[in-house]
Write a protein that binds this DNA or RNA. Structure first.
Lengths: 338, 338
DNA sequence: GCCGATCGTCGAAGCGCTTCGACGACGAGG
DNA sequence: CCTCGTCGTCGAAGCGCTTCGACGATCGGC
C-alpha cells in the first residue's frame, strides 16, 4: 500500500502538497495538481482511513442504529437502511451498522472511540432512554421518529398525524361517515413507538373536525387478530363503510377476511392503507394508500446529519407531508349506505 | 476525550503500560493493572479507533456487502445482516454496511483505505466479477454463496442441492411419484445467483435416483406468474401430487390459487417449501419446510472471517446440512392417486 | 520602481495509539 | 555467591495523514 509520501516522491512534491491536492484546502497550480493526480492514479494510492481520522478528527462514517430483531416492519426497515447507505455514499460517507439492542452502550462505544461522525437512529420510543445519552455525545444525531423530549436533537419522519387526517378527509370526501381504524399491534403501542400515537391522535382530531363516527382498535398480527379486531370494530359501531389500516401485517388477512365474509372492496367497504407503496400494490386489489416514504425520510436524515456536521442550520423537527395515492380500494359510498 | 496519556498520568504509569493492560500482550502486576483500570473507568477513557487502527493495522471492523435494492428476499437478507452484526459484536468487531451496487469499486475503496479487516459478501453470482477483485485485496473475505471459481476464498451457505434431495426424499417417502418444482423467478436464474442452480441440480439428480417423474419451472412473482407456472407444470406432467416450492414470493399466491381451483393442501397436493421458518408458519396452513438457516449461515460467516484473521485454518467450502421440519402441508398420497 | 497582497509550496509538529528494545529487580540454579 | 532468565515497566520510534506557519515568487497599485 503506497502512502502519501510515496505519492509525494513520485510527483516530486512534498506530502503536504499531496494532501492539499486531495482536500482542495489550498490553491495548487494546475501542473502540480496534474502531476500529483497522475502519481496517485499510477500508484493506486488510497489514503489510510485511520490515519486520516486521527489527523483530521473526521471519520467520514455515520452510525445507523436499526432494530434488527425480527421486528414487524422488515421491509420498511430495509428501505430506510438502503436510503441511508445510498445517501451517505453520495456525501462520501460510509455507514456503520449497529443494532438497537446494543442500546445506550453501543452508541457510547462508537461515539467515544471516534468511529463515527454522526448517528442516525430509527425505531425511537416515546421516552427513549438513549436520548439523554445522545445529548452527551460530541457527535450530532438524527432521529427517525419523534420521541417526546427531543429538544436539541434533530428528528425527521412522516407526519403521521397529517397522514391520518388525509386518510379521513379522503374517505369523508367520498361520503363515508362511519369509519374504523385498524391500528398497529398492541405490541407497537406497548413499546411506545411514537408513530402509532401520532397517527391515532391525528385520527381522532380529524374525526371530530369532520364530524365523523369512528372507532379505533389495535390489531394483533395474523388471521385471528384481524378477525377479532374487525369483530370489535363492528360491535362498537355498526354500518362501517370504510377502514383505515395502519398495520401492514394485517392488510393481507384483512382482505381475506372481508372476502370470506362477503364484504366487497371497494363496493361495500372502502380501504385506505398506510404502508409502503409496494405493499399496497402487491395485494389482490390495488389499495389506495398513504405511502410511508422510507426512502425520502432516510435520505433526509442523512442530509440533516451532513448539515449538522457542516455546522449549517437545520430544522430540528422535520415532518414530511403525507401523500395519498388513489388506487382501487375506495369509492363513493353507495346510496344504500347513506 | 481523555487519551491514553491522561490515563497513564492518572495511574502513575507510562502510556505503554496502559496499552499493555488493555491488550494483555505483556504481563502486568495485579496492583498496576488495578490502578490503570480504575483510572480508565474514572476518566471514561475509550481508545481512539483511528489511532488504534493506524498503530496496529487492525480496525476491528468487517464489511458486509448486502443487496440492498428492493430485491426479492428482504426478510432473508435482514436475517443474514442481523446474524452478522450480532456475531461480529461477539468478537468485538463492528460492521460497515455496503451495498452490492457499489460493486467492485466499493470493495476496493474500503479495503484499500484500510477501513475494514475482512469482508463478507452475500448474493454472489455464478461468475461474480467481484471475485477477482477480492483476491487482490490484502483483507480476507468470506462469501455467503458458492460462485463457480472460488478457489482460495472461503464460502459458506446452505447446501441447496442436499435441500432439494431432502425435499424429494421426504415426498417420495410419502408415496409421491409425480412432483413439480416451483422455482425462483426467471430473474434469479438470469442473475445466475448460485443457489437456484444448485437447488435445481440437486433436484434433478435426486429425481433420477429416486426414479420420480418431475417437472420444474421458474415462477414469476405475483398471482399471474403462479398461475402460468402451475399451468406449465400441469401441462408437462399430469397427475402431480406434490410441489416443492423454492420461491418465497410465490408461496402465498400459490396457496390462493390451489384453494381457488379446489386443490386442497395437503389432501390433494402436498407441499414442501424452502424458506425461512417464519415464512412457512405465517401461511394459512403451516407448511412443511426446509429452513433457510440465515442466522446460522451469517454467524458461520463471521466465525470464518475471525479464523482467517487469526491465521487459523478454515474449511474453504462449508455447506450447512438442510433440515426439514414437518408441519401440515404433506401427507401420504391418497389411494385414489396411486 | 517599490510595497504589500496573494499564490503555491514546503517543513515540521502533532493526532493517539502500539510495539520493540532496554533495563532494573528478583528468584533460581550451579 | 555469581550468573542467567523472567517479570514488570518504561521510553521512544513510528503508523500515515492534516494543518499551521513560513517563505520565495509573482503581481497589481500608486
Amino acid at each position: 500500500m503506497p502512502t502519501i509520501n510515496d505519492v509525494a516522491k513520485a510527483a516530486g512534491v512534498s506530502p503536504s502538497t499531496v494532501s492539499y491536492v486531495l482536500s482542495g484546502r489550498r490553491p495548487i497550480s494546475a501542473e502540480t495538481r496534474a502531476r500529483v493526480q497522475a502519481a496517485i492514479a499510477e500508484l493506486g494510492f488510497h489514503p489510510h482511513a485511520g490515519a486520516r481520522a486521527l489527523a483530521s478528527s473526521k471519520t467520514n462514517v455515520i452510525a445507523l442504529v436499526a432494530p434488527l430483531r425480527v421486528d414487524v416492519n422488515v421491509p420498511v426497515i430495509m428501505q430506510f437502511a438502503t436510503a441511508v447507505v445510498t445517501a451517505a455514499r453520495s456525501y462520501n460517507h460510509d455507514v456503520l451498522l449497529l443494532t438497537k439492542d446494543e442500546g445506550t452502550a453501543g452508541l457510547e462505544r462508537v461515539a467515544h472511540s471516534t468511529m463515527v461522525d454522526a448517528l442516525i437512529l430509527m425505531d425511537l420510543e416515546r421516552d427513549d432512554l438513549r436520548i439523554p445519552a445522545l445529548r452527551k455525545l460530541k457527535q450530532p444525531s438524527v432521529l427517525i421518529g419523534l420521541p417526546s423530549d427531543h429538544t436539541g436533537i434533530a428528528c425527521v419522519d412522516l407526519d403521521f398525524a397529517a397522514a391520518a387526517r388525509e386518510a379521513l378527509t379522503h374517505l369523508a370526501g367520498h361520503g363515508h361517515r362511519r369509519i374504523g381504524l385498524v391500528g398497529p399491534s398492541p405490541a407497537v403501542y406497548k413499546r411506545q413507538t411514537t408513530y402509532a400515537d401520532r397517527f391515532l391522535t391525528g385520527f381522532l382530531e380529524a374525526s371530530a373536525e369532520l364530524d365523523l363516527r369512528t372507532v379505533t382498535h389495535p390489531c394483533e398480527p395474523g388471521a385471528e387478530g384481524v378477525r377479532s379486531c374487525m369483530a370489535d370494530l363492528d360491535a362498537e359501531l355498526d354500518g362501517i363503510t370504510a377502514l383505515v389500516v395502519h398495520n401492514e401485517e394485517a392488510l393481507r388477512p384483512l382482505l381475506d377476511l372481508l372476502h370470506a365474509t362477503g364484504r366487497r372492496v371497494p363496493d361495500d367497504v372502502s380501504i385506505v392503507a398506510v404502508c409502503p407503496r409496494d405493499v399496497a400494490t402487491a395485494m389482490p386489489i390495488n389499495l389506495t394508500s398513504i405511502d410511508i416514504p422510507a426512502h425520502d425520510v432516510g435520505t433526509l436524515a442523512v442530509e440533516t446529519a451532513m448539515r449538522l456536521l457542516d455546522g449549517r442550520r437545520v430544522e430540528y423537527t422535520r415532518l414530511l407531508a403525507p401523500s395519498l395515492v388513489e388506487r382501487d380500494s375506495c369509492r363513493e359510498i353507495s346510496p344504500s349506505h347513506r
